[in-house]
Design a protein around this nucleic acid. Structure first.
Length: 303
DNA sequence: AAACCCGGCAACCGCACTCCA
DNA sequence: TTGGAGTGCGGTTGCCGGGTT
């Protein structure tokens, strides 16, 4: 069964946006806020597909966008993030304030790829171009070897639980969430491919701090958070509650990260509330935008 | 000056996912 | 449980402008 078209294509404009269309879209969103993209074109008097309006707003018209050339720091950050996340442009964009996924994707394809190739680095694998894949059996199956440090802090003052996950500076004493699986375990699935040491990544990205802080949203007004639901955030440390308002709603009820990593009842589990045993395990945990039952590291694979 | 080439980037397309009735 | 609606994401396309022949 096919999906219904997102709009009546016969009566929509395509191609470059005019100044007038931009103005109409900006005016409408200023008045009514983002959302309801399907109905927005009609309400705003635009002969455009809702998706087209959304794209135009997110990639071009949003007031918090930073236009202009990428800095050297941004270049290096993109490279490092891509080495970890692959083509997860939206996640990469989330760590570059004022930049959009589309912008970063284009910039990668036009500038950084060439830059890496000039350095003798394969932009897809982040390895030297003459480095045989056979020498790196994890390259093609693309296991991201990531060590996660998890720290919980529960403030008695605000009753908000915060989980910090650091992908940097992991030490052998770090808590290992999922242990190494035997190489030829027939039951081994991709999502179990996380390894408990990360010399590879640390070697590649010795100074990249991908620390994530997961905490319940500090906005209790869903409408206000919705209007600020942009995943652009001015800090490398990402508050996941800003990732998107729907994810935000999930995080409210999924405090214990350890449970969602499959170590329920383990010493990492900090569940002391009714959260445990609620929908968190069934709905999964949205971590970095990656849907997890057990944290699914397939999405972290290098392509 | 005209034709051609090529890189950059805005926009489109199709799929995947979540929500909800 | 199912399917439609809404939205997000990544890959791809195509236009446009600058450079080269």
């Amino acid at each position: 069964m096919g999906r219904s078209p997102c709009c009546e294509k016969a009566h929509t404009n395509k191609g470059a946006w005019t100044k007038e269309e931009d103005d109409r879209l900006i005016a409408y969103i200023r008045t009514h806020g983002e959302g309801c993209w399907r109905s927005l074109p009609k309400a705003a008097g635009l002969l455009r597909c809702g998706k087209s309006c959304r794209l135009r707003w997110i990639n071009y018209l949003r007031p918090d966008l930073k236009r202009g050339n990428f800095t050297e720091e941004e270049d290096e950050l993109i490279i490092k993030l891509h080495s970890l996340l692959g083509n997860k442009w939206s996640l990469i964009a989330g760590r570059l304030p004022g930049r959009t996924d589309n912008e970063i994707k284009n910039y990668w394809n036009t500038h950084i790829r060439r830059k890496l190739l000039n350095r003798g680095i394969d932009p897809a694998t982040h390895r030297p171009v003459n480095d045989s894949p056979n020498n790196h059996p994890t390259t093609t199956t693309a296991t991201a070897t990531i060590t996660a440090n998890i720290h919980h802090s529960n403030s008695s003052l605000d009753h908000l639980a915060t989980t910090t996950i650091s992908f940097a500076n992991a030490t052998p004493s770090t808590h290992h969430l999922i242990k190494d699986e035997p190489e030829h375990n027939p039951d081994e699935h991709d999502h179990r491919k996380i390894k408990n040491t990360s010399p590879e990544i640390q070697e590649r990205c010795p100074d990249l701090n991908l620390e994530l802080r997961i905490s319940p949203p500090h906005h209790h007004n869903s409408s206000s958070s919705s209007s600020s639901s942009s995943y652009i955030h001015p800090q490398v440390t990402q508050h996941v509650d800003n990732y998107d308002h729907r994810h935000q709603q999930q995080l409210i009820t999924t405090i214990c990260f350890a449970c969602n990593l499959g170590v329920e009842n383990g010493k990492e589990c900090s569940c002391t509330t009714s959260v445990k045993g609620t929908s968190s395990s069934s709905t999964g945990y949205d971590f970095l935008g990656l849907k997890t039952g057990v944290l699914d590291y397939r999405s972290l694979e290098m392509k």
